[in-house]
Design a protein around this nucleic acid. Structure first.
Length: 277
DNA sequence: CCACGCTCCTGCGCGC
DNA sequence: TGCGCGCAGGAGCGTG
């Protein structure tokens, strides 16, 4: 479930514990995640110094001289900084131990991943095909409009396609579209440049707001058993099926797109050609 | 290239 | 109280 803001906050949360530190131990309790956790990590990593902790899309990259440890949180994953000797709980699958502390991965549903990427890590198939970072300057209404051009895909599915745009998951897709007053089923290629400008802005604002909400919980990453939930936030659309729209009072509706629940306000987010700016 | 649907996994909430 | 069911979802992958 973590989307870009949660992953970004996770990176910031674990970086102070890892940066410049030498790995003392790797513990793999459950190697069967999305992909098998490499068996040789426990031999390969100890002694190596963490150069940096970065994020690309929803992938967390712990960088070493020889390569990168890639961590993906999947839907239910979380990373916490805990005392190295704290007893693991159920679903605590992986520890990266640095001295007295450990960065601990918990992932009940095991959709997450821990992989070793030799340099150049960004050439790895999982990373090479990733799309734009929505919080970077490279992303704006113009490039979004270009991505939409010629595509019949509903706009909600397009902004969730990590090969085009990274980090926007199911929750923030619905929220961004609500803010921009665009119906989720609108064929991407029919969106005007102006509406793409607005959507790009709303995606950035939605992610920024979530980031701000998560910033206040940074200390939770240290010495905490942690949770996997989203930041405390008031959603406009997501999960509000049957409730009143916070803007116009209409009833929020739910539909399924790409096997995913989608929430929108039928009044604020009109799909007809009469929809204005 | 494009669009779509299937799949992995477990916890939770619901109806009976 | 407990059982079984449906749902939740990131993203690779296979298919047409």
């Amino acid at each position: 479930m973590p989307e870009l803001p949660e992953v970004e906050i996770t990176c910031r949360g674990i970086e102070p514990a890892l940066q410049g530190q030498a790995v003392t131990e790797v513990r793999v309790r459950q190697p069967r995640l999305r992909y098998p956790v490499p068996e040789d990590l426990a031999e390969r990593l100890p002694g190596q110094v963490v150069r940096a902790v970065r994020r690309r899309g929803k992938y967390i990259l712990v960088e070493f001289e020889a390569g990168c440890l890639l961590i993906h949180l999947g839907m239910s994953g979380s990373l916490r900084v805990v005392p190295a000797e704290r007893a693991p709980l159920k679903h605590d699958h992986f520890d990266l131990v640095v001295g007295a502390q450990a960065v601990r991965l918990r992932d009940p549903r095991r959709f997450g991943a821990v992989l070793w990427l030799p340099h150049p890590a960004l050439s790895h198939p999982l990373l090479a095909g990733l799309g734009l970072e929505p919080l970077e300057d490279e992303f704006d209404g113009g490039v979004l409009h270009a991505l939409c051009a010629g595509r019949n895909t509903p706009i909600k599915l397009l902004i969730m396609d990590s090969h085009l745009l990274v980090g926007v998951g199911n929750i923030y897709a619905s929220e961004s579209l609500f803010r921009s007053r665009i119906h989720p089923q609108t064929p991407a290629g029919t969106l005007s440049r102006q509406r793409c400008e607005r959507l790009a802005t709303c995606i950035r604002e939605t992610l920024h707001d979530a980031l701000a909400a998560g910033g206040s919980s940074l200390r939770d990453f240290v010495h905490s058993d942690g949770g996997s939930g989203y930041f405390q936030q008031q959603y406009f659309a997501y999960g509000r099926d049957g409730e009143a729209c916070r803007v116009c009072g209409s009833t929020i509706r739910r539909l399924v797109m790409g096997q995913r629940a989608t929430f929108f306000c039928p009044r604020c987010q009109r799909r007809s050609a009469s929809a204005r700016s």
